[in-house]
Design a protein around this nucleic acid. Structure first.
Lengths: 344, 344
DNA sequence: CTGAAAGCGCTTACAG
DNA sequence: CTGAAAGCGCTTACAG
């Protein structure tokens, strides 16, 4: 077993003091070039690396960033995390993940921990339950301890912190307008996240885009069974020509319902979904989707946080919007009457 | 701004020594009940929590676990991470995530960091490139520093560490046998991970299950275009009755190819895939899949690691197999000739 | 029962 | 140019 060598041990081997070794390794101008060389040589030989914990204690930093993730099984958040990790790595920062599972209680526990000084800054996507209960005291408490906080993705909250996310309202406004311009009239929306900030904003965007004589079709429920019923009604009774789906579940469910009821996509109904591109292209038919650039959201959020930690940015809190784009695949294709997209 | 109170400050307020405060907070029998009460009261009032970095330095522990993830966008790993996090949380341990992106170079960098003492133990799923290059020196180097290592999921390597994963060979052996028992003969396998340990094992299991006069049908390529061609040949020319798909890409691709070529699932071809249940149930038709219990793999791996760190387990290294199960959905349903599963 | 001292592994102002 | 000392915030063996 190898054991890590310490400054003290290096000092003894070199017959100099610990301070000299420390300074030499940090290229202090106080130390003679000759000594610096000697010290560095031996350090390299023994693969010396400073004990991170000791450095942290001395500098009153932890060298780590806490990331609060509501639901890691959601590949959006997984991708966001990936972007954060990439940015943190360039800075030599460690990323500690905390998964709230959308639970208010768990989120409070985590926040409590964080105020004890485990991290230099925190990136948060607020849990669903917390949004419902509208209790953000634990987040404010982190801020009070002067630990920089950046909200990501779920940013529609009134809090004195930086925020990085997308323009949820605009996404569905544009998508709706786009479909209208192509001649569609009966456009509906399916959502299982209407009670969350991002969900609300998406619905609003859609609503705003509706023209005077358009009908507002909404299938909303966090309960799958109920969402199934409402969406089915929209598809079969209201006979909508297109459905905007605001999240993974509503997207996939709409696909299932079309499949189960012999509705052809896109011939009978067009669909725009909110799922990741890696999956979207594979669906049968491939589903047009809103590309949120989750990795960019993660990178930018981490970037903003780092500037706050390093006090490179001491200006007023910012709200940063990452561009989105509707990627059109088969599910919004316009095909000639009678023709079919499907093979055979 | 609130600032965290230290032992020293508490001591001053109480007019006792730092050592007394420390002992009192740790319920030392050396301290009088009265003093303990006084100290704890004030500590609670000021919400005192020991500085984690200081505690770590003193105890020569970091209180953190490093988790190496090859690809977080793969929801399997996201779920595994979730299980790890849950277990770590119960132990008061922090989870630091490192994403290798299947890169050998990055994995080496990370390993190098880890030997500097950032973590008390490491959970690793070895990167694809590392498997190809067969260079595991960096992993051995972690072990040499006496940092406990547990391999998870990708465990088919000869290394003196604990391992937690599934029996990849058995999964496809059983699946093949099951389809055979139901009367199928021409069973094929599609895979984009045949060059990885888990991929190889899955192919082997399938191969072993083949009987004397069965043909071995294999569509394998890490390149999507090539996999597409090979799978297409298997479906259209070889006319296989079932395809075992060993990973996300091969599963989704096989679905696409059936769709594009008018093959009905399961009427014309049955499919067993390797994707998560949350997605499997939504596909059209829903796809029968191998449930790997990723959260259990994560929890167990963390559990084993913790026993090693605490020296509760000093026995020989173990290999722990988590049970899997084929969940049957529509894609393996046996339907009467002429009948169709699809709506309409 | 309480406190002074040493020490975990570093960094840095200060003295020589 | 080098080193002794103090200190980051704790814990703990030891003395009183």
């Amino acid at each position: 077993m190898k054991t890590r060598i310490t400054l003290k041990e290096l000092a003894k081997l070199l017959n100099v003091s610990v301070s000299t070794v420390s300074k030499a390794l940090n290229d202090s101008p106080e130390i003679s070039p000759k000594t610096i060389e000697r010290v560095k040589e031996l350090a390299a030989l023994h693969k010396y690396r400073p004990n991170p914990t000791a450095v942290n204690l001395k500098s009153s930093k932890s060298g780590t960033i806490g990331v609060l993730i509501p639901n890691i099984a959601n590949s959006f958040f997984a991708k966001v995390l990936s972007g954060m990790e990439a940015r943190a790595q360039r800075e030599g920062l460690q990323v500690i993940t905390y998964i709230s599972n959308e639970s208010h209680e768990r989120e409070k526990q985590i926040s409590e921990m964080l105020t004890a000084g485990f991290v230099d800054g925190v990136l948060i996507a607020i849990a669903e339950e917390t949004q419902r209960k509208k209790d953000f005291e634990h987040i404010r408490s982190i801020i009070q301890y002067d630990i920089p906080v950046v909200l990501y993705d779920r940013i529609d909250f009134d809090m004195p912190v930086d925020k990085v996310g997308i323009d949820d309202r605009k996404v569905f406004y544009d998508a709706t307008r786009d479909l209208q311009n192509k001649g569609l009239k009966r456009i509906g929306i399916a959502t299982s996240i209407h009670h969350m900030g991002v969900g609300k904003a998406r619905i609003e965007g859609y609503k705003e885009a509706l023209r005077e004589d358009d009908t507002f079709y909404l299938a909303n429920s966090a309960k799958l069974e109920s969402l199934r019923e409402k969406t089915l009604k929209m598809l079969l009774e209201d006979k909508v020509e297109a459905v905007l789906c605001s999240d993974f579940d509503s997207t996939m469910l709409t696909y299932r319902l079309a499949y189960e009821n012999g509705l052809r996509i896109p011939e009978d109904v067009k669909i725009i979904g909110f799922i990741r591109g890696g999956l979207a292209k594979y669906l049968t038919p491939s589903v047009s989707f809103v590309d949120q650039s989750p990795d960019k959201i993660g990178e930018k959020a981490m970037d903003v946080l780092i500037s706050r930690i390093n006090r490179k940015n001491t200006g007023p809190k910012e709200k940063i919007i990452i561009d989105t784009e509707v990627v059109h695949y088969e599910s919004t294709q316009f095909v000639k009457k009678g023709a079919s997209l499907r093979g055979n």
